[in-house]
Every structure is written in C-alpha cells, then in structure tokens.
Design a protein around this nucleic acid. Sequence first.
DNA 1: CCGATTTATGCAGAAACTTGAATAAATATC
DNA 2: GATATTTATTCAAGTTTCTGCATAAATCGG
Lengths: 163, 163
Amino acid sequence: MGATGEATSAPVDKTTRQDLILRLISERDLGTQQGVVGALADEGVEVAQATVSRDLAELGVLKVGNRYLALPHEPGSAGIEVLPSFVLGLTPAQNQVVIYTRDGTAGAVSSVLDRVRGLKVLGTIAGQDTVLAIAPDNAAAVEVAGLIADVCRAKTRPAGNVE
Amino acid sequence: MGATGEATSAPVDKTTRQDLILRLISERDLGTQQGVVGALADEGVEVAQATVSRDLAELGVLKVGNRYLALPHEPGSAGIEVLPSFVLGLTPAQNQVVIYTRDGTAGAVSSVLDRVRGLKVLGTIAGQDTVLAIAPDNAAAVEVAGLIADVCRAKTRPAGNVE
DNA sequence: CCGATTTATGCAGAAACTTGAATAAATATC
DNA sequence: GATATTTATTCAAGTTTCTGCATAAATCGG
C-alpha cells in the first residue's frame, strides 16, 4: 500500500504522535505549528494546532530562527539553550568539532552536548576551555557545527513552558 | 516529627507508592500481599490488597519461595526468572560470584544479570559456560550468590501478568 | 504603532486510568 | 480431597488526562 500520504488511519496515541513530530521536524523543514499540523496530516494523523503547541512544549523542541529543532534533552538538566552563554566559537575539522568556550566551562558544555538527544555526536572530550565533539563523519561534524552555531547566533527560544 | 509509623499522611500517587513497595520488600521480610498492605500502612499509605496485587504485577516483583524479591528488570527483556534454565551451579569467591552455566549460555546469563535492577553487581564477564559477576565486596557477593541460588532452587513465579 | 501571523491558554466534553469492594481463581495445608 | 490462605479479576465509581474549539497573548513585518 501507499508509502506516503495515508488518509485517516488508526487514531494514534500521544506518545506515538510526539515521536512522529520529532521525526517530521528532523526530516522536513518545518517552521510553524500549522506546518506541523499539515505534516502530521500527510501521515494520517489529524490534530489541532493547540495540540501541536502543547506537544512541542512537552518535547522541549526549540525554534531556532525559522526552524524547529528536534533536540530535546533530558528533562531537568541543562539543555542546548544554555550554549550561547558558554560557547565563544567553533570550527569543524574532519569528523570533529572543536568548540571554544569560556574558561572553565568546557566541562559543562560537553556535558550538555552529551545529554542532547538527536545530536549526531558520538562522544565529547573536554579540556579547560575547549571541547572536542566527535561525530561519525565529516558531514555530521559540519551539520553539528552549523547547528550549534545557529543556536548560539539566532534568537533561541524554548517552544514552551511545560508546567 | 516521628521518624517511623506516620498515621495517615498525604495521599501518595501510584509511582511513589510503587517505589515505596520496592523499598519495603527489600528492607523487610514480606511474603504476602496482606503483609505489604500492612507495611504500607506503617508508612502512612493505605491501599487495598487488590492494589498491591496490581502493583507487584506491574513492578515485575518475583516471589521466591516465601519472600518477595525486588528485582524488577527492564521491561521487554529476559529477566531473572530465566536463570533456572541456564544456571548449573555457582560459588562466591572473594567479591566475586562464579556462575557455571549450560554451554554457550554464559553470555545470556551475564546479559540478564547486567539488566536486573537492584542486584548488587558491579559488572560481569562471560566466557562460554562461566560467568564472573563482580560485587562490591564479599558480603555483597555472598548475598548475590544466595539470591541466585534461591531463584534457581525455589519455585519461582512472576508476581503477575501486566497486560 | 498597526495589522497579520503565530503561539499559548481557559474551558468543556470524551476517553483513559486508578482504585476499592466483592468475588472468583489459585495455591497451600492438613 | 476439604478447608484455609493467598492472589487475581470484575465491576463501578472517582479522578486524571487528553484534545478541540474559541480566544487571548505574543511576535513579526512594514
């Protein structure tokens, strides 16, 4: 049967829908909740914008500039949104990203990077003011670097306040 | 205020109660659901036996012989109840437990031991038909050995079938 | 600053979950 | 094997969660 664009299929539960949202905003270029509603509809999941609003908040999805980023982190711990306070610069090199941080904060930055789910980072090594993030390959390293740069540059705002 | 034996305190939610149950059956020697109800009451948590029955089932608590064991494992993976099929014998040595298994099943046994929460095992090493389980100290090793022996000897039955 | 777009929230009905009482089923004891 | 004990399950509240609708609040583009 059809690979894409089902009509109305079985009603999915909240968890399934939220997993789907995480996948969709990784694959497609989604920047509005209405867009997410449409993308969900393409997959046969029909919900209201209000629901997407609440889902994004619960998932901890960030909106960087004009794009949602599926980078939720462990609840309760510092997330990627603290990076702008610590990161001074960064540069991809081979399959690595070298990240320059305020002195003494490299450990914290590496800790954050380790905890962010969805980031293509295999592992990190932290010095005093430098973090080395190891990615699977150069493409991933470039992607990660771009992502972190975006987060640090653009006005980043959490997609919501989970109660 | 009193350290033990509160009267009726704030109504606790399901998760809190289940955590408490895990702790109680580790500390005390509980062998019946009515006993668990009583132990909970001592802590100021009043519930019916039916609730305890459902809790034990959800928690995956085992009843070995005449005693509940708080050894829940990752849901969906093989748990401690498969050990009798694989384990032939075992002996504590220093802070380790040497476990003799059916040939080829040492890996599976070690995998199970690694996944069982609440077991005082730091790590395991598996050969072909032998598993070495490393405990913090001799006392822990003896305890673990006794536990595994009990599980293999006594009629072990899962405390329930979660739907 | 104004209108348009995007996002968040109060509310209400629906659905799902939780739990105790009663009772059935299973297990142990003699 | 009969009885007593222990555990599981059915049923019916009571409670919580979920979600759309309508609307308020916030943000963006001139």
